[in-house]
């Protein structure tokens, strides 16, 4: 499904223009993002770095359409997402974004297969097709053999691979990972980073948040933010 050609409209996959995100706490205003602009092309592999409290997660939430900017425009595949309502955002998340979380966030009572099926359920895809696509997705992360296992019957690395299969199953435009190796030991972490590299080679666009330099080194571009602003944006 990652091989499906993205019907790329003219222009970048992501266009962020002067993004602001302001939290109002009583009389105080906290500017978590202060005018962030960048563009990301299809099939890029980008790492976002920065010290704690710099605004990384806030930016990830905007890119992942979990939140909308207080000011500025966020254009995803030619569509301006900034003014969408909750349900429209949910639909965009379902189709365009594949989330990989630090804590995996699998449903504990559901099997690996059922977890991977979940985005397809919300896309309204019938059971048979759902199962077939979820199986294919699990094969891509080499977990077809563990399909019927519950999360607590899987190792940390296996759990994260289930989460990646779930993120990929809808064939999203972006794979968005927030500290995906934060809860894994070094060896398993490296395995996951290897998987990301393979997925990028197969055509996926990956955006990764991390505060670890050597994890960020895997990416081809590093955006460094500090105090809600982009400090540097280097391609390698």
């Amino acid at each position: 499904m990652s091989a499906e050609p993205v019907a790329a409209p003219a222009g970048p996959l992501i266009l962020a223009e002067d993004l602001w995100r302001t939290y109002v706490m009583g009389a105080e205003e906290i500017h978590a993002l202060r005018g962030v602009s960048f563009a990301i092309q299809p099939n890029e592999y980008v790492a976002i770095m920065g010290p704690s409290g710099s605004g990384k997660s806030t930016l990830m939430n905007l890119i992942g359409c979990l939140d909308t900017p207080s000011k500025g425009d966020y254009v995803l595949r030619g569509k301006n997402v900034s003014k969408m309502n909750d349900d429209e955002l949910a639909e965009v998340r379902n189709r365009e974004i594949g989330f990989v979380f630090q804590t995996f966030n699998l449903l504990p009572r559901a099997s690996a297969l059922q977890n991977v099926e979940l985005p397809l359920v919300y896309a309204g895809i019938p059971k048979e097709e759902r199962v077939a696509r979820a199986k294919r997705s699990l094969e891509m992360v080499d977990l077809a053999a563990r399909m019927s296992h519950k999360p607590n019957e899987l190792s940390g690395g296996q759990r994260q691979r289930v989460a990646i299969a779930r993120a990929l199953v809808m064939g999203p435009s972006i794979l968005l990972a927030d500290e995906p190796t934060g809860n894994l030991d070094t060896t398993t972490g490296n395995e996951i980073m290897g998987l990301f590299e393979r997925l990028q080679r197969e055509g996926n666009t990956i955006i990764l948040v991390t505060h670890e330099r050597d994890i960020a080194e895997h990416a081809h571009r590093i955006i460094f933010i500090r105090d809600g602003k982009i400090e540097s944006d280097e391609r390698r």
């Binding site: 992942g64 979990l66 909750d86 349900d87 949910a90 639909e91 998340r93 379902n94 189709r95 989330f99 966030n105 449903l107 979940l118 985005p119 919300y122 896309a123 779930r166 809808m170």
Partner: peptide, 16 residues
């Protein structure tokens, strides 16, 4: 609560 957050991140709408 967390499960609800995950479901919403994966595309669940309010009515779901």
């Amino acid at each position: 609560t967390r499960e609800i957050g995950v479901r919403k991140a994966l595309g669940a709408k309010r009515r779901d």
